[in-house]
Design a protein around this nucleic acid. Structure first.
Lengths: 249, 249
DNA sequence: CGAAGTGTTGAAGGGTTTCAAGCATAGTGG
DNA sequence: CCACTATGCTTGAAACCCTTCAACACTTCG
């Protein structure tokens, strides 16, 4: 059970070099695992959580339910992402987390998390860093929803997912699986599933992507980036306080 | 001169009890101050900041500029709010910060910030907590922009500002100053200033608010909350959950 | 087989934007 | 004191993006 199969540890190592002691502490921390089927709630809004869940495989989303019955997805969660860090830190969960596929998570008690942070300051730094990264993703999402058209939003989401999947090593070719419905895309971007459908058709017709049976193929990466106005800087993939690396795709 | 005039320290004290040593360290940390006039940039996107700015008085906003020339305000900053915590922690600023009024900030070097965090774990916890709170605000903003109408968004923003101002002791009556233009409201909520204007008139006509010369009066608080679907839980004003590992005495 | 979920398409309607103009206020300089 | 300018608020009309409602095809699954 090295960290080869652990996207979370792999991701942290990308951010900052970790020593043996830190890696051992991490592996011990992540021992407990739990599996969920698709369409289940891992955490519910209003909970007072004392456990952190960390995605190891599968897809999930953090969401809010509004009074009118609408759902807004606040974040899409990939392997390596903490599900409910905010709720654990602040003591009260104000978003729910639902699985989109079958999912394996590591379950970490709040106390264990904090005491590991005390023992290994660099791991505590990473905790703060993960929260900050979440922040950056949400800032960009706000920018999308406020000032980008539906076409631009969808393109931007695909660009982001493509890069994020690549960054955790789940992406090699120009095609990847989007194992969820068009309604999920709509709930993520503040659109209806009907309009998402039309936008997807337009992007297909323009030769930018192909999306069939939950398989997304990026046929024209520069074109897609241009439509989206995508600049990957906000993903902060270059690591903690590292030099800027302009990735070209 | 102690922390009576310092909204940042006052706010932290609301969240968790602080000892004498911690308060002294905080005051020493916040000694350096700087003043900006209205309409200036405190930080610019792309900077590699080594200083944290903390709002002590006035209004500011964090924003992004999009390719098409549009501006999206990601957060409105009040006294007590850190301006650029994300950028300082992650090493690269991906939002700009602009003043909306004349502003006084405390300027804290990154190194001083981190070393104080090492010396006083509870202050480090508060840093993480502030980041998490920012996160919560942005989640709710995403929900607003994705699933609420313009009328609901404006009402929700006013509810949020009202409660936030109250929480830092800047709000006592049912009226408060909104020292910025309707375009700022639009850039915050993803609307045009023209439409914001029309929405404001409707809210006025319905007897919910009165807004004249940058002075907002809430005339029907229950009504405004109802329109907004406002639930203040996400602001986490009840304080920080006791952190077992950072209890001292 | 029937039911449920998802993708697709069409038509109509509405919320918001865009464009344009007019008005008020404050500041500036002659 | 009066143009003159700049900024922000207000209003109207037209256009547009997106939603809503509805229907149908297709697949999966009990």
């Amino acid at each position: 059970m090295a960290d080869a199969d652990n996207r979370f540890i792999a991701r942290l190592k990308l951010m900052t070099p970790l020593g043996i002691a830190e890696l051992l502490a991490l592996e011990r921390l992540l021992q407990d695992r739990r599996e969920f089927r698709a369409g289940q709630d891992i955490v519910k809004a209003g909970d007072r959580p004392d456990q952190l869940h960390i995605m190891l495989s599968g897809w999930a989303c953090r969401y809010k339910l509004l009074g009118g019955g609408g759902r807004q997805i606040v974040a899409l969660l990939l392997p390596g992402d903490p599900c409910d860090l905010d709720g654990v830190l602040v003591g009260r969960q104000d978003t729910s987390v639902a699985t989109l596929t079958s999912v394996i998570v590591a379950v970490v008690s709040r106390d264990a998390l904090l005491s590991v942070g005390r023992a290994h300051p660099r791991l505590a730094d990473l905790l703060l860093w993960l929260t900050t990264l979440d922040n950056a993703l949400m800032s960009e999402r706000i920018a999308s929803m406020g000032r980008r058209s539906a076409r631009e939003r969808v393109a931007h989401l695909f660009c982001e997912l493509f890069v994020r999947l690549s960054s955790v090593g789940l992406q090699t070719s120009n095609a990847f699986a989007l194992p969820f419905t068009q309604e999920v895309i709509g709930d993520t971007l503040g659109l209806t599933s009907v309009h998402v459908n039309r936008v997807l058709q337009a992007l297909r017709k323009d030769g930018l992507i192909d999306l069939r049976e939950h398989m997304l193929t990026v046929k024209d990466w520069p074109g897609l980036k241009a439509v989206a106005g995508f600049d990957p800087n906000y993903l902060h993939l270059s690591g903690m306080r590292a030099a800027p690396t302009s990735q070209e795709g």
